[in-house]
């Protein structure tokens, strides 16, 4: 395996990282809104987001990518492969993160919100200053876990013809006929992405837990 192959794989790695970032940032922002809507106490919003979460958790990511890429083009919405994948990942991640964070928000003891209310704090301050910092800590293991899943899930983007790491792997394997070697290198690349993230997660968890001990 020579330099061109490595460069090609690194190119794939770059797209995997980029896709993961888009999925996490987009999904994080949208997911926060889903979580807030889901816990808003407004029946209309709660039912709508509950349906949204159910829909995206209940169908395969692969199918969601297909629908965004091929399905929407049938109704005249044509996306480039990377756009379709970015949209698909954002929608999917927002549903999962929204549900994880909903659970964490609900896990913050009721007395916290009540004390904040009694102090006359408004909704924004109640959430930003009191509830979300505590919910974040509760959600950390699940959030990091999902992020790792998301990175590995980007391999599905190859299905709509997008050359990220998994597809680059495939292409190189077929060119140089050394599938095991290429698999090994690509596996190490995925590992190099996901492992530090898990470490970062545990570190952050310990750091955030410190003051309450």
């Amino acid at each position: 395996m020579g330099l061109p192959e490595y460069l090609f794989l690194l190119q794939g790695l770059k797209w995997t990282v980029l896709l993961s970032c888009i999925g996490f940032v987009g999904g994080g922002i949208a997911g926060l809104m889903v979580a807030l809507a889901r816990t808003s106490g407004l029946p209309v919003l709660e039912r709508a987001t509950s349906g949204y979460i159910g829909l995206f958790q209940g169908t395969p990511l692969l199918m969601q990518l297909f629908v965004v890429y091929y399905g929407l083009s049938l109704v005249g919405l044509q996306f480039e492969a990377w756009q379709a994948v970015a949209i698909g990942f954002t929608l999917n991640a927002s549903a999962f993160l929204g549900d994880i964070w909903r659970g964490s928000i609900e896990a913050v003891p009721r007395g916290q919100t009540e004390a904040a209310r009694a102090l006359s704090l408004g909704y924004v301050s109640r959430m930003r200053d009191v509830v979300l910092p505590q919910a974040l800590r509760i959600s950390l293991p699940a959030t990091i876990g999902f992020l790792v899943q998301l990175i590995k899930g980007t391999s599905l983007a190859s299905i709509v013809g997008f050359t990220e790491l998994a597809r680059a792997d495939n292409i190189v394997s077929n060119q140089i006929f050394k599938p095991l070697l290429v698999f090994g290198v690509v596996g190490a690349m995925y590992f190099a992405l996901c492992w530090p993230l898990s470490l970062f997660g545990s570190w952050l968890e310990r750091r955030l837990a410190a003051p309450t001990r």
Partner: peptide
């Protein structure tokens, strides 16, 4: 009690006066 566990004693006491 319902103190905010992620804030210091002082921060617990200054939050509402500052925000409200």
């Amino acid at each position: 009690f319902n103190l905010f566990p992620h804030m210091t004693v002082l921060e617990n006491c200054t939050l509402a006066p500052m925000r409200v």
